[in-house]
Design a protein around this nucleic acid. Sequence first.
DNA 1: AGACTTTTAAATGTCAGACAAATAAAATCT
DNA 2: AGATTTTATTTGTCTGACATTTAAAAGTCT
Lengths: 248, 248
Amino acid sequence: MKIDPNSSADLSAQIAQAIRDAIVNGDLIVDERLPSESELADHFNVSRPTVREALKRLAAQSLIRTQRGAAGGAFVNRLRFEDAYSQQITTSTLLLSMNAVSFETACEARYALERACAPLSAQRRTADHLATMRAEIVRQSQPGLTDEAFCASDVAFHRALVDGAGNPVLSYHLAGAVEAMQPLMNMITFTARSREAIVALHSRIADAIEAGDGAAASAGLTALEEETLKLGQTVFAERQRKERPAAN
Amino acid sequence: MKIDPNSSADLSAQIAQAIRDAIVNGDLIVDERLPSESELADHFNVSRPTVREALKRLAAQSLIRTQRGAAGGAFVNRLRFEDAYSQQITTSTLLLSMNAVSFETACEARYALERACAPLSAQRRTADHLATMRAEIVRQSQPGLTDEAFCASDVAFHRALVDGAGNPVLSYHLAGAVEAMQPLMNMITFTARSREAIVALHSRIADAIEAGDGAAASAGLTALEEETLKLGQTVFAERQRKERPAAN
DNA sequence: AGACTTTTAAATGTCAGACAAATAAAATCT
DNA sequence: AGATTTTATTTGTCTGACATTTAAAAGTCT
């Protein structure tokens, strides 16, 4: 594990990268203890605060965890799906809000990805997933609900749909796509009539999932995408210019 | 922007979270300058090294960038898709390697997500995307290629397919799913015969994309998934136990 | 006056040394 | 043997200092 003495980058960034590489390459394995901060400082010929800055960078990515005390130190962390979810959601949310991604583009991506889960979910969902979907539909039908609560319930419904596929890798990738749209959805005022339409489509999708009919579930998602798009266009009309040319 | 004095967490983690929240909530906008390290230290009543550790955490997530010099400081960074790609790929790769995700599960997720892109790509791909796909097919047909180079070309082919959809949000989400499988694919020894089968399927997919036939492209991907699975099962037979129950 | 050079000030990057707090292991005591 | 105390190790935090970079201000020359 070496760093380039000619590099112009921060020492702490270089050290973090060296350790990160060692983890990704498998030179450091899960739960392995890194040398102490002092030892790392000696090894890289830097001071302890510099080493600490490097370790904090890695901790921010959940690549290591630290423990105080005699047998403490920094350990290679097993990156769990739950940890990755929250990072994924934060990153996805910021990507949308900072890059002037149009509502249409975000919507298209979200529903395309969800349709990829629908057939698997129709095949594999447990009774629990279905119950969650039904429960959220009931919640969404209550008249007193705020727009925020309606959106949160919408997310919960779709999460259950996605998780029904029983594939944690899919759930991980979808988490960002679904949750990152919530801030955008929160900007939409849902009339009683539009809520009714959405809830009806949710029921249609839940029915298809219950029946094990993946194609029908996909069709329901497509209809929901159109409905969502229609609602969004009235709100986000001014944004629809500059992001498609910058695609990729 | 406050921190909880009763929390047991590290001060630098708390401060990073406070600033992160401010960015996500829009209290700090892109390119806005944060107070200097000394000012932040005064504000949060901590020392400068502690503030620096917090800032390094944020820098590791590309949420801020720093600049030295008189008009320097820490600035809220516009999170770009390219920056997010590499983080996404690192995270996805580690998720697979550290959680004993079966080859089947990873494969299923990848191809399900790719099929979501196929119809859009068939509709919108530029001549450039198609040319890249064709060029990679030619490269893959060359006999002298190492397994690693074959896999790298495979990734490039699929990236072109995904990017053809012209939706940067989709490309972002797919980047992890596609690239994270490369280490697994690298463990497979491709016989001349299996390469032939893969290249034939790639051609079939490219033809469908060229013809604008999304359904045919999806079908080609399904066939490719089956072929890939077949190859992988001989290598990864021992792994197929414990990850499905731990789903989600 | 205008262009060039020098100086200055502000900010991050790095270092050294110290102490606090947590914690596991070793030593001690009952 | 079991409970308690001590000790050593390690991370967390602070203070203060100096190095380096950089933009702006001040000064100088034509």
